[in-house]
């Protein structure tokens, strides 16, 4: 059973993610954010100074503040100038950042929000799924990736702050979001639109590889899985009903309700970005996921004893 201290965030830490951009779709926003935060602080200071003068200032200063002219300058002229500049900046940046149709040869990934995890499908040029995964996205450094965001149930919101602003995933719509990572690393994110139940525990990670490392990752995913040797864990998997919801390529397990587990052993996290992934946490999750993530769609498997859980966890951890 995992203890709570084993739960860990994929997102967070210092410096604040929004102010620590890692790609060209977040960097200009960070610049805007700094301008706004500093400019806002300056304006606040000016207003406070004006208030202080009004309350305690010298009579001559107060006279200058106390009339329609002060309102015209402070309340109308100054804001009009500043806001016009900001509006133009914001509009220009909006047009610049908004993702339009895929560019030729661009990597496309469809991410579907589900209660409460993320279904990930890597698409080819014609939009067919070539790799299935869940709760993490692998991208090569330095290339743009077009994300096609949709939802299987309620509204979710995809947000990896170090790479781009957020975009809602809405049933019946397909929203586009372009990202690019300029440095290798893992970038965390979390569902930003309240989606009921354990909305708080719906994390995501983007893993940016160097181009060579990404090609290796991709090749490993595309390689046909050798017909696996039957193990005790695999037998349990099939016998306990896991296959009704999960797919493991190369076996009879072809359920579609839950995350694809073909490569579950190589994922960074379990339970959608909330547990580190190892045999212990795998066993704990299977036995009692409802305590770790209350309300999630996977039932507890308390009927399995410790030996069985270990066998199952061994098997799953081995699916690299």
């Amino acid at each position: 059973m995992p203890t709570e201290t084993q739960l860990k965030a994929v997102l967070g830490g210092w410096p604040p993610a929004v102010l620590n951009p890692a790609g060209p779709y977040s960097e200009p926003v960070t610049l805007l954010a700094w301008a706004l935060l500093i400019g806002g602080t300056v304006v606040l200071a000016i207003v406070l100074a004006a208030l202080a003068v009004a309350l305690w200032g010298a009579p001559s200063l107060r006279r200058r503040l106390g009339g329609d002219r002060a309102i015209w300058i402070g309340g109308i002229a100054f804001p009009v100038v500043v806001l016009t500049a900001l509006l133009v900046w914001g509009l220009w940046l909006t047009g610049d950042l908004a993702a339009k149709a895929p560019r030729p040869g661009e990597m496309r990934v469809r991410i579907t929000g589900e209660m409460w995890w993320w279904r990930v499908a890597y698409l080819d040029e014609s939009g067919r799924t070539v790799i299935r995964d869940a709760n993490e996205l692998h991208v090569p450094v330095g290339s743009t990736v077009l994300l096609e965001l949709d939802s299987a149930d309620v509204i979710h919101s995809f947000w990896v702050p170090r790479l781009a602003g957020k975009m809602n995933m809405i049933p019946g719509r397909r929203n586009l979001l372009r990202i690019q990572a300029d440095q290798p690393g893992t970038f965390g994110g979390q569902c930003a639109e309240y989606c009921g139940g354990p909305h708080a525990l719906m994390g995501f990670a983007v893993v940016a590889h160097t181009p060579e490392s990404f090609d290796r990752w991709r090749a490993s995913r595309l390689a046909a899985r050798p017909a696996s040797v039957t193990s005790r864990g695999q037998e349990l998997f099939m016998a306990s009903g896991c296959a009704a919801c999960h797919t493991i390529a190369g076996t009879q397990a072809a359920g579609l309700a839950g995350p694809d587990l073909t490569h579950v052993g190589s994922r960074r996290t379990l339970g959608a970005g909330i547990l580190p992934n190892n045999r212990g946490t795998l066993a704990g999750w299977i036995a009692d996921s409802q305590t770790i993530k209350p309300g999630n769609r996977m039932p507890n498997y308390k009927q399995l004893d410790a030996r069985e859980l270990n066998a199952l966890a061994d098997y799953l951890a081995g699916l690299k």
Binding site: V80, L87, G95
Partner: peptide, 15 residues
Amino acid sequence: LVAVLWQALPPWFSG
């Protein structure tokens, strides 16, 4: 007048 002018801007920035 100011608000109408501002609203006239967006179409010119959306490519």
